[in-house]
């Protein structure tokens, strides 16, 4: 292989990529991390069901202020486990699609879930007409809980989940497109990061054995993201609205996120799994 690439201008970069890990990870070594991750996901869904109940109850009771205050925190557990939720694409679409995903945008009858309710609470500033959406969300979230209970998490979904979460951030959270009516994007941002970090943490012993420098670089970029986000944490819990994010910090986050996306895309390869 080396001879084939040596004459290329980009050779140094390529050699680094094709270097095989010294010790490939055996599927058996993944049993414990996957079991731990399943536990994390199950707890996440349980929290989601509990929080969604309180949130949708407030919506149905017509308590606008309470519903608004519960919106961002309710989503956190969903955003943490999003790669698993996305295994059930029908539910993910019903729970978390944005107006952009629908031809008639906010007026589209298929636009349901968190963001439809967000649109009512924050753009229209009213709970009027939201009860059917609240009922549907509660039912979809409960359905998700049932399905997750019976789920065997495939190793590639867990490993790929870290990158998938970062791609979510890179595509919509970094631009403030996700929670466009409430501007609570930084909550989702942190939750995606937490979800990705959890996977990386569970795999760390294996990753470090395969490629210590890779593991250290990933950790450093996570640290940059967390440090930057921490500037926007409120004492009361949660985060400042997205519009408070400075241009300099947005760039810092974008660079760290894009680098994490490039690196975590290699996680499967670094672990020597095929």
């Amino acid at each position: 292989m080396a001879k084939r690439f040596a004459w290329l201008a980009g050779a140094s970069m390529i050699v680094a990529v094709i270097a095989s890990p010294a010790l490939a990870v055996s599927p058996l070594e993944l049993v414990t991390p996957i079991a731990d991750y399943k536990l994390y996901v199950s707890r996440g869904v349980d929290t989601l069901v509990r929080d969604t109940k309180a949130f949708t109850d407030a919506v149905k009771a017509g308590d606008l202020a309470k519903a608004q205050s519960l919106y961002a925190s309710t989503r956190v557990s969903y955003e943490m486990i999003e790669p698993i939720a996305e295994l059930f694409s029908d539910l993910d679409g019903a729970i978390d699609s944005r107006a952009d995903d629908h031809e008639k945008k906010e007026e589209d009858p298929e636009f349901t879930g968190f963001h439809r309710i967000e649109y009512g609470l924050f753009a229209k500033k009213s709970t009027e007409g939201l009860s059917p959406f609240a009922d549907k969300l509660m039912s979809d979230v409960s359905d998700l809980q049932t399905r997750v209970r019976g789920l065997t998490i495939p190793p590639d979904k867990m490993i790929g989940g870290a990158a998938a979460l970062i791609e979510e951030v890179a595509a919509t959270k970094i631009s403030g497109e996700e929670d466009r009516y409430s501007h609570t994007d930084l909550w989702d941002f942190q939750a995606n990061i937490d979800g990705a970090k959890k996977i990386v943490d569970l795999l760390r012993p294996l990753t470090e054995r395969s490629d210590k420098a890779f593991a250290a670089k990933v950790d450093a970029n996570f640290a940059t993201v967390e440090k930057t986000l921490a500037k926007y944490r409120l004492q009361s819990g949660g985060f400042e609205t997205y519009d408070k994010l400075s241009e300099a910090d947005r760039k810092t986050l974008a660079a760290a996120i894009t680098t994490l996306a490039e690196d975590l895309a290699k996680l499967q390869g670094v672990l020597g799994l095929s």
Partner: peptide, 23 residues
């Protein structure tokens, strides 16, 4: 400089182990 010199010269596209994203 390295990327531009390579791209303007042309040649075999860099490749990687199939377990990795292609470079």
């Amino acid at each position: 400089t390295e990327r531009i010199a390579f791209l303007m010269q042309g040649g075999e596209a860099p490749t990687a182990d199939p377990a990795y994203p292609p470079p």
